[in-house]
Amino acid sequence: MMTCKDIADFLSEYLDRTLPWSQRLVFRLHLLLCRDCRRYLDSYQKTDHAICQLKDPGTSQEESVPEDLVKAILAARRVQATDSHPL
């Protein structure tokens, strides 16, 4: 018999579908009978969804790099290149 604590502990495995089928069945049965756990599952999924709204789109322009930093990186690269290939 699964308790509410077990449900909370194994929530992520349940959602990732990595629980063995027999445990998954017991899990679903508990959810069917327990309003608190259904609500907990729903709020956990909404939390996950909310966090993923912040996902880095890969072209994020939210931070504009100071031009000085760009120049510093390029200057450091030139020094690095000179150091590795001295005249």
Partner: peptide, 8 residues
């Protein structure tokens, strides 16, 4: 790439 890397 610098803007994104700075944000990261």
């Amino acid at each position: 790439h610098s803007n994104r890397m700075f944000a990261v």
